[in-house]
Amino acid sequence: MSKDFNMVLAGFGGQGILFAGKVIAYGGLNDGKEISWLPSYGPEMRGGTANCSVCISDKTIGSPLVVTPDVLVALNLPSFEKFIDTVKPGGTVIVDSFLINKKVERDDVNAFYVPATKLAEENGIKGLANIILVGKLFKETGFCSEEALYKAVEKCIPARKANMLEFNKKALEIGMNS
């Protein structure tokens, strides 16, 4: 696999955008790829918009700021509207359709709709919509190997929150099966 992935994940602060980006980044790293992860940062501490750029590549990564992503994962409407036109033709768009009641109007991208926030609640893993969407992204793009992805989740969850590990794995599976 030698495809490069330049991704933007975007939503509200508190939705776990940066964490999801980190899981994706570790997935790539576990496959021996070059990786960069760049968060937006601003004056707002809670409830503002949050997004991050993740690059996975076989080559040295130049600018870590993704301007024209091949993958967009959107968790709220403002982010969806802000980034949808930046996605490269042929790119992939993953939408939390529970929070975003709009469809992608472009026909040159592959759009997938997952009611992740609702699925998370129904499955008793409230707050893990982000990881459900990572599961979906994995299924649709194969941005890393399955083994690397599960190892990534293990890496990103600190030992003191070990009980969260199973929930996160469950979230990945829900995403993969959606």
């Binding site: 980190k22 980044a25 790293l29 070059e34 990786i35 960069s36 992860w37 760049l38 968060p39 940062y41 990564i61 870590p64 700021l65």
Partner: peptide, 10 residues
């Protein structure tokens, strides 16, 4: 700079 400070890389 802020980009290098904030970004994660291996």
């Amino acid at each position: 700079d802020g980009m290098l400070g904030q970004m994660m890389e291996p």
